[in-house]
């Protein structure tokens, strides 16, 4: 163990955050204010998610951290290290093995289970902020369920682009009551918001926590004549050949050669280990042989 209290935060702070989490779970989609602490990382690096994770972790947990689906980016690596050091918990890159998953901008491809918790890092928790800058007014709009403005945003999208161009942070209505920003996940992930695992959202700079309990109804907003569509690049993964996963587009050279690969690195690796090979991929069995 280190000299830090378990998971860095002091017990009173964790208690305070747990209360906010419980309140959030009790009122799905409602933004609960909490006294966000200074964390040893800058705002925008996931201070909200880290505080929620810290208040959620127990010594027996196994933690996974992903950033845009990947386990190996700077942000994911440093947050994983942070909890290895301050909480001494086991960490993993395998979605199925994790009990707590902190994520930035993605939901893992693999279906999550009831014994798992997904913690989102949220930059701007207020879905109405785009059109109504006043926090007083947006809170009132939430409390009175005045959500016409949310459709104004979608209307503007269609008017300008001919379709709802909002591709991430696509607004949803939770359990028929609160309109919620699902954090900047691609709208491809929106249907997955109805899941078995507990989903917790933490916004450090904005000092808000909200939650979606297991099996909660989450509906993406749309128009009758412009229904919601969970879109992705129309391409299979070039490494593992998956056709059902969200893809990152990678530019390979100055000539503009592109490659589409799974954004969920664990999912892609798992498929390749099972022998799936994409157009530009090499099976891991061959790699091992080489």
């Amino acid at each position: 163990m280190s000299d830090y209290n378990f998971a860095y935060l002091d017990e009173q702070t964790k208690q305070m955050i747990r209360r906010a989490i419980l309140k959030g779970l009790a009122i799905p989609g409602y933004q609960v204010p909490f006294a966000s602490r200074e964390m040893p990382m800058p705002y925008g690096w996931g201070t909200g998610g880290v505080q929620v994770s810290a208040a959620t972790l127990t010594p027996d947990d196994t933690m996974k951290v992903i950033d845009q689906g990947a386990d190996d980016t700077t942000n994911a690596v440093s947050i994983r290290k942070f909890f290895e050091k301050t909480a001494g918990v086991a960490t993993t890159e395998a979605t199925a093995e994790a009990s707590v998953i902190q994520t930035r901008h993605r939901i893992p491809e693999e279906t999550l289970r009831e014994d798992q918790i997904l913690v989102y890092q949220v930059p701007i928790p207020e879905p109405l902020r785009f059109l109504e800058p006043s926090e007083v007014e947006t809170r009132k709009m939430h409390s009175l369920e005045e959500y016409g403005l949310m459709h104004v945003k979608l209307y503007e999208d269609i008017a300008r682009h001919g379709a709802i161009a909002t591709a991430y942070a696509y607004p949803v209505k939770v359990e028929g009551r609160y309109v919620m920003d699902p954090s900047p996940i691609p709208k491809f992930d929106n249907p997955k918001l109805e899941m078995a695992a507990i989903q917790l959202f933490g916004a450090g700079r904005e000092q808000r926590i909200y939650a979606v309990p297991p099996y909660t109804q989450v509906v993406s907003l749309d128009f009758e004549d412009f229904p919601f569509e969970a879109s992705k690049a129309d391409h299979p993964c070039d490494l593992c050949g998956a056709e059902d996963s969200y893809l990152d587009e990678v530019i390979m050279d100055d000539a503009g050669t592109r490659m589409f690969v799974c954004s969920d690195t664990d999912y892609c690796a798992g498929r390749r280990a099972a022998g799936h090979v994409g157009a530009q991929g090499v099976s891991t069995q061959e790699e091992d042989a080489a």
């Binding site: 005045e146 016409g148 403005l149 459709h151 104004v152 209307y155 269609i158 128009f223 009758e224 004549d225 412009f226």
Partner: peptide, 11 residues
């Protein structure tokens, strides 16, 4: 906006 505020959902 006022139409959407009172429930219009057909673009």
């Amino acid at each position: 906006e006022r139409l959407m505020a009172v429930g219009a959902r057909h673009y």
